[in-house]
Simulated assay, not measured.
Amino acid sequence: MFFHPMDFLILIAFGLSIWAQFRVKGTFTRWSEVRVMSGMTGYDAARRMLDSNGLHDVPVEPVQGTLTDHYDPINRVVRLSEPVYYENSISAVSVACHEVGHAIQHQHSYPMLVLRHRMFPVVNFASGVAPFLLIAGFLFNAMNLVGVGIIFFSAAVAFQLVTLPVEFNASNRARELMISEGFITNEEERGVAKVLNAAALTYVAAALISLLELIKYIMIFTSNRD
């Protein structure tokens, strides 16, 4: 359990995750210093994009912190971190429109988003229980517990994999609408792409780590069963 060949790949993926976190912060900071020619703040861009898609009843609210931006599907609210909400940079507009992309997905019942929402209650429980089952199973050499832990952990991995197309689709929607509605110029699209791609990489790294860990547990379980 503690020393396995898969650990080398997991370590590499973990390094990728750390690098991705630094990259997203660095990219956000860099493009926060570049103002959009339209002069719109993150709030302006989010509000206009919501209104242009008929989502007049979805509010845009500021929240404390950095990179704490998210769309709340339960209360149907776009929440933007203060640096995004108030600033008129490429980073601010990019992040704001990405979150609106999730609201538009919700509006059109984007299948992967619907699946993600339906999975959440199960995954929330499974991800909390899985580590205890796996640890107990390995410590006491109880392969039945390990097997159940793997099933629960698989649900968490599936959730992360489903999250990937949701995030990429939201970014694609944002970029298309930002250009078509004149929020950014064609020259500014390069900066927008860098900000959104850096953010997406963090989700890819997290999913990769979880997937490799799942493969490791399955390999250990299979070898012990044999």
Rank of each mutant, 00 (worst) to 15 (best):
F2S: 05
H4G: 05
D7G: 03
D7C: 03
F8D: 14
L9E: 10
I10N: 08
I12A: 11
F14D: 05
G15R: 14
L16K: 08
L16I: 14
S17C: 06
W19C: 11
A20W: 06
F22R: 15
F22A: 12
R23P: 00
V24A: 07
K25D: 13
K25P: 00
F28A: 14
T29M: 12
T29C: 02
R30H: 14
W31Y: 15
E33P: 00
V34P: 04
V34W: 09
V34R: 14
R35T: 11
V36L: 02
M37G: 04
M37T: 15
M40L: 11
M40S: 09
D44W: 08
R47G: 10
M49R: 02
M49W: 07
G54F: 12
L55T: 03
D57Y: 10
V58E: 08
V58L: 07
P59T: 04
P59I: 05
E61G: 00
E61L: 14
P62R: 03
V63P: 12
T68C: 13
T68Y: 10
R79Q: 15
L80D: 12
L80C: 06
L80E: 09
E82M: 13
E82P: 01
Y86T: 06
E87P: 01
E87F: 14
I90H: 13
S91D: 08
V95G: 06
A96M: 05
A96Q: 01
E99C: 01
V100K: 00
H102K: 02
A103E: 05
H106M: 05
Q107F: 04
H108Q: 13
H108L: 15
P111W: 12
P111D: 05
V114Q: 11
R116I: 08
F125V: 14
A126Q: 07
V129S: 06
P131D: 12
F132N: 15
L134V: 07
L134H: 05
L134R: 11
A136P: 03
G137Q: 02
F138T: 08
L139S: 09
F140R: 13
N141C: 09
N141I: 08
A142C: 04
N144L: 10
V148N: 02
I150E: 03
F152Q: 10
F153C: 06
A156G: 07
F159I: 02
Q160E: 09
P165Q: 04
E167N: 10
A170P: 01
N172Y: 04
R175G: 06
R175N: 08
I179F: 06
I179G: 01
I179V: 13
F183K: 00
T185Y: 12
R190K: 11
R190I: 15
G191W: 03
V195W: 07
A199M: 11
A199N: 09
A199D: 01
A205P: 05
A206S: 14
I209P: 12
E213K: 15
E213C: 00
E213S: 10
I215H: 08
Y217L: 00
I218L: 13
T222P: 00
S223H: 14
